[in-house]
């Protein structure tokens, strides 16, 4: 699974892109966030406020209950501020 981090998600985690292999019980976006938070204080801090996060799975906005699978590209970022 490919993970991408943008804006302050990237700044706080110190990661812009990584490939991970979450355990089989990670089935949804929510599961993935829970698993990521256990990876250390930087991730725990960056992902603390789920309301402030947006998640895209394969470049489509996703809900917490949406499924994630091994081949997915999952992006984590704050609400967008372009335009």
């Amino acid at each position: 699974m490919k993970l991408l981090y943008f804006a302050w998600l990237k700044t706080k985690t110190g990661v812009s892109e990584e490939t991970v292999s979450p355990p089989a019980e990670v089935e949804t976006v929510a599961d993935l966030l829970t698993w990521l938070k256990q990876r250390g204080p930087a991730f725990e801090d960056a992902l603390a406020d789920v309301e402030a996060l947006r998640v895209a799975v394969n470049q489509e906005y996703a809900e917490m209950t949406d499924p994630v699978t091994a081949g997915d590209e999952v992006a984590l970022f704050p609400p967008v501020t372009g335009g």
């Binding site: 700044t11 704050p78 967008v80 501020t81 335009g83």
Partner: peptide, 19 residues
């Protein structure tokens, strides 16, 4: 576009970069 397009602004401020 303002709410859907994935862009993020990092502003230079006197206190450094601010998202």
């Amino acid at each position: 576009l303002k709410t859907k397009a994935p862009f993020w602004k990092l502003e230079d401020t006197p206190d450094g970069g601010q998202w």
